[in-house]
Write a protein that binds this DNA or RNA. Structure first.
Length: 818
RNA sequence: GCGCAGGUGGUGGAAUUGGUAUACACGAGAGACUUAAAAUCUCUUGCCUUUACCGGCUUGCGGGUUCGAGUCCCGCCCUGCGCACCA
């Protein structure tokens, strides 16, 4: 009997599949399309167990659909620009280009060894000039549509990376690449930056979230990130002691205009423009000191110190609703970047204001009557009080009314604010797509004409940042010096490169037309294949997924693609954890190498099946050293079953056995199909295991060449093929096929085989299980009840009491209440 | 602090609309095959009581609704993730 040896069959089939190009997607196929993919790879080292997990998830989905009659496309690409790659190259003393030329082939081999069904004919790399030409073109297109602009502003700066960071790239006040204990806290630095105006799409991006079939937590994270809040801007006149004041008012943003009568002071952020102007002479020293101190504080310090601090400016403002005189303070708990950088403080109804008022003994006026006591602060809704003409009205109604009334006087306006900021896309690093801009003394910043794209990244010997805040490109003088496209005069290229999140925000579309040199991609093909049917990953809940949505939405507006949403279904999967429940890390050296497991003899099939079986895909399973041996045993059981069958003679299978075999097989087909569709891979695999166990019991009799056994074995082989593609391919051939198991072989279940002659009815007495009854499946309620009451054990518990009620659930249970 | 998700055997985890709690797997125990071991196959395995049957208990804790609750409702406790002074 042929033994199961992954070492021999896996490479054999990998070669055969490649030769036959069975995974090459025909984008013009007349079959229904399906595209499943995982977030593409950031090549920076070896394939690790996290990759194995992520990519197997979408790969199984792609295989399931390919077997089910779809033209299934499982693309592959490399997110090859970016810092980790550049840092690795610097460390290795080679260029990033050379580093990629080393890494990518290794990854390719690893992908093949995992048995992933990628279409290698359409492979892309973001560092390929053919690709980044279009990344640059997106910048130009954004610019032409008024969505890319340059601005000088304070930016987060990581000293280790020597580059600015987007808000999304800061974790606990540290750079996302340097969040260790010894790593520096990010600093603010004034830098001239290019931005994409993602805020212009804030509302659309938020509204569209509802309809996405995405992991709920990711949808929520995106909504939080966008952070929409409706409110009003209200003007407070500054009480003037000195006629020379340039500005006479302070505009505050509030989401609770209904509490305006309770505003007992104003607070400005220390960075607010008016601070110097309004500060009185006797408070000047204190204010100056406070402003200076808070500017030196890092964001982390500012956020970690719970204690609120502030200082009085010596000036007052007038509350527009009742002309009350309220003091103006400055405090760093008010953020400069949000709203107007100034708030009206309502200590009775805002916890932060309450805390501040307590500390500095400022008055507290309650204006909403709710369940809170007089001593505590509460933002709950209620009925207005101490609010003149609004008294007695519900606070939720007054919110709009008060703004409308003030709007008439021209001192307020309805306003919606967002937490989300524009996307900073400039990076002061070498390894990225150069921003297609030149600076001319006469014409300023000028776009490089499309005909001159790509602006090719020059090869350098030294690509360390220049240290003055500019990238290594600042030293590439030949490249740097150019001519102005507008006037032809001397000009200098932009030395910043584009954030790699731009590269990854549109790659899925390039998969449909990877070598087009005339256009970014063919719209007709993209419209046929978009949106991506299935997408998964264990990271980037906000940044990448938000940027990809933004860019796709932009593409739909300029007519490049119809659907504004790129990913129809998105599954945010868990990460494999070490056996002790902690994250795998390089420093701990506790990583699991997928190739090592494959080569140890267990093979890719057992590894893949284990990863998909260990837990639901959303969970983070702990690595179990017993796991792969267990799934190896499962595959081996299928293997031996098929081999044994191949060695049998023709057999007559009695009808009663045939029924049992079919019941087992068709239940399995149904369950596996539904579970694969619903991304419940772990229970799909357990259904296949259960079926195999049952077939093992059934094979002790009437086992042999027959239609019913052939069908059963083909079903178990086909249904296990997405998880264990190599072994199942071999077995498929052993069952007598010449063509591959991986295309158009998915079995369908027939309901008629799922109906048994008898059903098991559970009998309860007062809700407690007392008997199991086997009755004919067509039995009437009366028959079932009679049989139930006749049962010996049921009789014992009913005794001579008369049933007061009998609950009957057809085909399931009888509950006798006495 | 706020938001979200979740607490089920020794372990990972299953359980349609409320309807046999613990599927499947690991681990453990026993047996078969073998000179022996590995591999393979078969059986047992929530807890208590019992030779066995029978019975009792059990889904983080406490209540409630119901003929019936892992599932629904109320109040606690704990864990994980996300956001974090966004007015």
């Amino acid at each position: 009997m042929k033994r199961y040896s992954p070492k021999d069959i896996e490479p054999k089939w990998q070669k055969k599949w490649a030769d036959d190009q069975i995974y090459k997607a025909d984008l013009g196929s007349s079959k229904p399309k399906y595209i499943a993919m995982s977030m593409f790879n950031y090549p920076s080292g070896n394939l690790h167990i996290g990759h194995a997990m992520n990519y197997t998830i979408s790969e199984v989905k792609a295989r399931f659909k390919r077997q089910s009659g779809y033209e299934s496309y499982h693309p592959v690409g490399w997110d090859s620009f970016g810092l980790p790659a550049e840092n690795r190259a610097i460390k290795a003393g080679i260029s990033p280009q050379a580093s990629m030329a080393e890494l990518i082939p290794d990854y390719r081999n690893a992908y093949i060894a995992m048995g992933w069904s990628n279409d290698w004919s359409k492979e892309i790399s973001t560092h390929d000039p053919l690709y980044y030409k279009w990344t640059q073109w997106i910048f130009s297109e954004m610019y032409r549509n008024g969505l890319a602009y340059q601005d000088s502003r304070m930016q987060w700066w990581c000293d280790k990376c020597q580059t600015v960071l987007a808000n999304e790239q800061i974790i606990d006040g540290k750079c996302w690449r340097h969040e260790g204990i010894q790593d520096p806290i990010v600093q603010q630095k004034e830098v001239k930056q290019w931005f994409f105006k993602i805020t212009a799409y804030a509302d659309e991006l938020l509204d569209a979230i509802d309809d996405l079939d995405w992991t709920e937590s990711v949808k929520l994270a995106q909504a939080n990130w966008i952070g929409k809040s409706k409110g009003a801007e209200i003007d407070f006149e500054i009480e003037s002691r000195d006629k020379s004041h340039e500005s006479r008012k302070i505009t505050v943003f509030t989401t609770r205009p209904d509490t305006l009568f309770g505003a007992t002071f104003l607070v400005l952020a220390p960075e607010h423009d008016l601070v110097a102007q309004i500060t009185s002479n006797d408070q000047k020293t204190a204010v100056d000191e406070y402003v200076k101190a808070s500017s030196l504080k890092s964001e982390l310090e500012r956020q970690s110190s719970k204690e609120k601090t502030g200082v009085f400016t010596g000036t007052y403002a007038i509350n527009p609703i009742n002309q009350a005189k309220v003091p103006i303070w400055i405090a760093d708990y008010v953020l400069t970047g949000y709203g107007t950088g100034a708030i009206m403080a309502v200590p009775a109804h805002d916890e932060r204001d309450f805390e501040f008022a307590q500390k500095y003994e400022l008055p507290v006026i309650r204006v909403v009557k709710n369940n809170a006591t007089d001593e505590e602060c509460s933002h709950d809704e209620g009925v207005m009080m101490s609010s003149s003409q609004y008294d007695g009205l519900p606070s939720s109604d007054v919110r709009e009314k008060i703004v409308a009334d003030l709007e008439q006087k021209g001192v307020a306006i309805e306003k919606t604010n967002y937490k989300m900021r524009d996307w900073s896309v400039s990076r002061q690093r070498y390894w990225g797509a150069p921003i297609p801009i030149v600076y001319c003394q006469k014409d300023g910043a000028v776009l490089v004409p499309d005909a001159q794209l790509p602006v090719v990244l020059p090869e350098l010997d030294d690509f360390q940042p220049s240290g003055d805040g500019r990238s290594a490109l600042a030293r590439a003088t030949d490249w740097l010096q150019t001519t102005c496209p507008t006037c032809g005069g001397p000009a200098e290229r932009e030395t910043d490169t584009l954030d790699t999140y731009i590269c990854s925000s549109w790659y899925m579309l390039r998969y449909f037309d990877p070598s087009n040199t005339e256009k970014i991609f063919d719209t007709a093909v993209a419209n046929k294949w978009m949106p991506i049917d299935f997408y998964n990953g264990g990271d980037h809940a906000t940044a990448h997924l938000l940027y990809a949505r933004f860019v796709t939405r932009f593409f739909s507006k300029i007519g490049l693609v119809d659907d504004p949403e790129p990913f129809k279904q998105m599954l945010f999967n868990g990460k494999v954890l070490a056996s002790d429940g902690t994250m795998f890390s390089k420093s701990k050296g506790n990583g699991i190498d997928p190739l090592e497991i494959i080569n140890s003899g267990y093979g890719a099939d057992a590894l893949r099946t284990y990863l998909m079986f260990a837990a639901p895909l959303e969970f983070s399973p702990r690595w179990d050293p017993q796991g792969v041996p267990a799934t190896y045993r499962f595959i081996n059981r299928i293997w031996n079953l098929v081999q044994e069958y191949a060695d049998t003679q023709d057999a007559q299978v009695q009808e009663a056995y045939a029924k049992k075999i079919r019941f087992s097989t068709h239940s399995m087909i149904k369950k596996v199909s539904e579970d694969l569709e619903g991304n419940r891979y772990n229970t799909a695999i357990s259904a296949a295991m259960k079926c195999v166990n049952e077939l093992y019991k059934l094979k002790t009799q009437h086992f042999g060449k027959s239609v019913v056994w052939q069908e059963a074995l083909e079903a178990i082989v086909a249904c296990s093929a997405p998880f264990a593609p190599h072994a199942m391919e071999e077995l498929w051939q052993d069952l007598g096929h010449d063509s591959t198991v991986h295309i158009d072989t998915w079995p369908t279940h027939d309901e008629k085989y799922l109906q048994g002659d008898e059903v098991t009815i559970v009998v309860q007495v007062n809700g407690k299980l007392r008997a199991n009854l086997s009755v004919a499946s067509g039995a009437s309620q009366e028959e079932v009840q009679t049989a139930a009451l006749a049962d010996e054990n049921v009789q014992k518990h009913v005794g001579n009491k008369k049933p007061t009620k009998i609950i009957y659930v057809p085909g399931r249970l009888v509950n006798i209440v006495v």
